[in-house]
């Protein structure tokens, strides 16, 4: 896995800085749901500052893989090391990892009984033990970044889908995470709202955030990813730089998948 396009004078967005430091490492990860083998010997190394897009057909295990990185799913075999911490049953370690890893979900998962501002300050206050005032300042800063500071005192139910997803991104950023995971962040959105969310993610990528993103937005992948991973039936079937991945897929299943989604 060390054949990363991490050095060399490549052009485009993938030229952004990627350190040699390892952010996430999956070694021979296997997972079963009952008898169903959902992750099969997944190996993946992500360096700090890398932006990885994961795609693949429905049911291929993309969500399962990305969710096992913050232990929303438990793996049964292999090793997952995030930010130098190996994920085991140790709850302390799991919470330590989750503090450093932000996650954005397909259905936002905002807390409907709290205002936007409270959604954003909750974890800093309760997990980072930050004073309320400071947490609110930081939250406002990130709400401005995702361009909805004026919604701070509304409830999630009063916002559009796109706005909610941007709040969800801001909420994660308030914890000052080292890594961001996105699981189909735009697929529950109306088409006209996809762009506002993708723009937010692009600007995040430009700042050098380590990102793993399950998405079928191939334009996004071309623009910001420095690696695209294709999964099928619980396996990583192919991975490459976006240019090469889209123009010259090697595996039969990748070709079939791309022909289906790129028309």
């Amino acid at each position: 896995m060390s054949t990363m396009p991490s050095s060399g004078p490549s052009s485009g967005p993938s030229a952004m800085k990627i350190s040699n430091e390892i952010a996430i490492e999956l070694i021979g990860v296997n997972k079963w749901y009952g008898d169903f083998h959902v992750l099969r010997d997944v190996n993946l190394t992500v360096h700090r500052g890398e932006r990885i897009v994961i795609c693949g057909p429905s049911g291929s295990g993309k969500s399962t893989m990305i969710r096992s990185i913050n232990r929303l799913e438990e793996h049964q075999k292999g090793k997952i090391i995030v930010d130098g911490i190996e994920l085991t049953n140790d709850l302390k370690k799991i919470e330590e990892v989750r503090r450093e890893v932000g996650m954005v979900f397909q259905h936002f998962n905002l807390f409907p009984h709290l205002t936007i501002l409270e959604n954003c300050t909750l974890a800093p206050i309760w997990v980072r033990k930050m004073p309320k005032k400071q947490a609110e300042e930081i939250a406002m800063k990130f709400l401005e970044r995702v361009r909805i500071p004026e919604q701070a005192n509304k409830y999630p139910g009063q916002l559009s889908g796109g706005q909610q997803q941007r709040v969800a991104i801001a909420r994660s950023l308030c914890m000052n995470p080292k890594i961001m995971l996105f699981d189909e962040p735009t697929s529950a959105l109306d088409p006209e709202m996809v762009k506002e969310v993708l723009d937010t993610m692009i600007s995040l990528a430009e700042e050098g955030m380590t990102m793993l993103c399950v998405t079928h937005e191939m334009g996004f992948a071309r623009q910001v990813a420095n690696r695209v991973i294709f999964m099928d039936r619980g396996q990583i079937v192919e991975q490459n730089e976006p240019e090469a991945f889209f123009s010259n897929p090697q595996h039969e299943r990748t070709k079939l998948f791309l022909s289906q989604i790129l028309h």
């Binding site: 929303l72 979900f105 998962n109 807390f111």
Partner: peptide, 22 residues
């Protein structure tokens, strides 16, 4: 919804705080 538990867990909230707050 399960997403509420996951949203709380993903931010590093432990069991009791996520029950109490979310």
């Amino acid at each position: 919804p399960k997403g509420q538990y996951e949203g709380a867990a993903a931010m590093g909230l432990g069991y009791w705080p996520s029950m109490y707050l979310i």
